[in-house]
Simulated scan of single mutants.
Amino acid sequence: RRRMFVLWLSVFLVFSGLGGLATEGWMLVTARFVTGVAAAFMTPAGLSIITTGFEEGPRRNKALLFYSGTAAGGFSIGLVVGGLLASVDWRWVFFAPVVLSALILIAALALVPGAPRTDRTGRSLDLAGGLAVTAAIMLLVLGVERAGHAPLVQTLATLGAGLVALAAFIVVERRSAAPLVRPGIFRDTALVRANAVGLLFAAGFFGFQFLVVLYLQELRGWSTLQTSFAMIVIGIDAILSPVLVPKLVDRFGNARLILGGLVLASLSYGLFLPVGADWTYPVMLPSLLLLGLAFALTYGPLTIVATEGVDEEEQGLAGGLLYTSFQFGAALGLSAAAAVNVSATGSDSPAALLDGYRAALWVPLVAALAAALISGFG
């Protein structure tokens, strides 16, 4: 796990720097693609370092809640810092992660213990399964995105191809001697429920923020930096996750906190549904604050539930599944919100733009309500 984390963190560092040096569009796209691949490997590896470094129980739960808090803080601070750097020069958006990655790399080499020599399974890489599931996710997201502007036949064909790729992935995993995802892991109903809730929660969370940013910048004319500072209040979860949430987990348990967070997320999205053309920031603030609180109550406990009771050798798999669920959900939420927004916007007039936002805001609300429904059963 340490080797995996360090290797892909190094790849991320190098290609983030190359992205900042890009002189052509294809160079920038390639750099972003490789950094995305690197993140896909190192994020679950980092999570599994935590889950295997602490025994299951209060200490691991506290560590995971600190993990979720720092992740939330990084996202919120990144919004502001990214906006500030972009206003100076877009290349610094790529150069800044190089510095941070270098510091993390030094810390990982110095502080994270290496795996014992016996920790080698000799398993081969399930390349066919990886390609099939990646194709399935990309095609399904593309199909949802096309629904807003492409002909119906093309949309259905893309979605159908995605489902075929997903079926191929299932067949490959059942027949593979060393599957990328062991099918038997899905007998753990708590893990399945946590991943389904994570997917839907991420769909709503990122879809909502996408629409708020469009509203502030397209309709209200706010700058990138103004928008970033407006959204930073969502970062309240960075404070609550390590300070308050552990006490709430001890008192109420993970399931109740997750359900409570999903209810608050639904309330946050619902309050924003009647958004007006001249809303002041204090009117928007309750939705943003509630969303930050919802993230604090949901993300950390979901991480605990999704990795709880899983054998140590499959902690990386459990972390990878949760990470994939969040990323897939985020992509679906963004695509669905964009598709509805495009379909409901009849022209470039302020009134038409507002109609598009209001219609698309139902996407995160429905996603959060569906997640709450699933969560309510366990």
Score class of each variant (00 low, 15 high):
residue 250 D to S: 14
residue 251 R to F: 11
residue 251 R to G: 11
residue 251 R to A: 14
residue 252 F to C: 09
residue 252 F to L: 15
residue 252 F to I: 07
residue 252 F to H: 11
residue 253 G to Q: 08
residue 253 G to E: 05
residue 254 N to L: 05
residue 255 A to L: 07
residue 255 A to R: 11
residue 256 R to V: 10
residue 256 R to G: 11
residue 257 L to E: 04
residue 257 L to M: 06
residue 257 L to G: 00
residue 259 L to W: 09
residue 259 L to A: 14
residue 259 L to E: 08
residue 259 L to N: 07
residue 260 G to Y: 01
residue 260 G to R: 04
residue 260 G to N: 06
residue 260 G to T: 11
residue 261 G to M: 06
residue 261 G to L: 05
residue 262 L to S: 02
residue 263 V to M: 12
residue 263 V to S: 04
residue 263 V to L: 14
residue 264 L to C: 07
residue 264 L to D: 15
residue 264 L to F: 06
residue 265 A to M: 12
residue 266 S to A: 15
residue 266 S to M: 13
residue 266 S to Q: 07
residue 268 S to K: 01
residue 268 S to H: 00
residue 270 G to M: 15
residue 271 L to T: 01
residue 271 L to V: 03
residue 271 L to R: 08
residue 272 F to I: 05
residue 272 F to V: 02
residue 273 L to Q: 15
residue 273 L to A: 14
residue 273 L to G: 14
residue 274 P to L: 14
residue 274 P to H: 04
residue 274 P to W: 01
residue 274 P to I: 03
residue 275 V to C: 03
residue 275 V to K: 01
residue 276 G to W: 05
residue 276 G to R: 15
residue 277 A to C: 10
residue 277 A to P: 02
residue 277 A to W: 02
residue 278 D to F: 13
residue 278 D to T: 05
residue 279 W to G: 09
residue 279 W to I: 07
residue 279 W to Q: 10
residue 279 W to D: 14
residue 280 T to R: 14
residue 281 Y to L: 14
residue 281 Y to S: 11
residue 282 P to A: 12
residue 283 V to M: 14
residue 283 V to I: 08
residue 283 V to D: 06
residue 283 V to R: 14
residue 284 M to A: 10
residue 284 M to V: 01
